[in-house]
Amino acid sequence: MTSHPYFAEAAANRIWSYFFGRGLVDPVDDFRLGNPATHPQLLEALASSLREQDYDLKHLIRLIVTSRTYQLSSWTNPSNRLDRINYSHALPRPLAPAVLLDAISQVTRVPEVFGKMPVGTKAIELRFPSESSFLDIFGTPQRDVVPEPGGKPSLGQALHMFAGETFNQKLSKEGGFLARIVESDVSNGEIIEQLHLAALARLPTPGELAGHQEMFRSRPRKEAAEDLLWALLTAREFCENH
C-alpha cells in the first residue's frame, strides 16, 4: 500500500488536518490537479519525513505538534485576522461532541451516565453509539470514519443549550461542584474565579470580575452561580478548540 506514489502525501496531509482543522490539500481526500496544496513544499517535506521514518505516524505527529506553526495562538491581529489558509494563527474549531460532553461533565463534576456502562465512563470511550440526548443532538460518534464528522452547529444544539437536561441538570445537581462551592463560605469573587479556572483555565479579567459580581449582588447566590456557569459552558471560548 505504501508503494503508491501518493500514499505518503495523502497520509501526511490527513494527519496534518487532524491538528489544524484543514489539510494542506483540502478537502483532505481531494488530491487532483485543480486542487493544489496551499504549501506544496511543506507537504513534500512531511511526506519525505514519513517515508524516511518508515511510515512512523508517531514521529510525524511529534514533528507537527512541536512545530512553531502548531503552537501559534488563535488570537489574531489586524494584519492576519482574515487569513484562513496561511497558518498565521491557529484556526478555532468546535470541540467534537463527545469531547464537549466530557468537558461539561468534568467541569460540573457530574458524570454523564450512558445506559448500562459503569458510572464514570467517558463519552470518548464509548465503543458504540449509546443513549445520550446530548450526543443525539450534537452528534453521536459512529466509529466508522476518522476524524468523526460533527460539531456542525444546529438549531437543536441551541435549543439544548437553553432548555436541555445536559446543561440544566448538571448545573443544579445536589452534591455537584457548583452546589458545594455555593454552600461553602468562600466569597462571591472566589466563586467567580473558581468557575473561570474550572471552565476556561484562566482567571476572569478585572472587568469580567466586576460585571459578574454585580450579578451576584442582585440575585440569590445559587442562581447567580448557576447562570454564570451556564454562560461559561456555552461560551465559544469553552466550546471551541483554540
Partner: peptide, 21 residues
C-alpha cells in the same frame, strides 16, 4: 440573566478569535 452573563464571558474571546461557526 444567563444571556447577559454569556455576553460578558465571551466578549473578549470573540474580539480576538474568529470562526465560521
Amino acid at each position: 440573566s444567563r444571556r447577559d452573563a454569556a455576553r460578558l464571558v465571551d466578549s473578549l474571546y470573540r474580539e480576538q478569535v474568529r470562526s465560521a461557526e
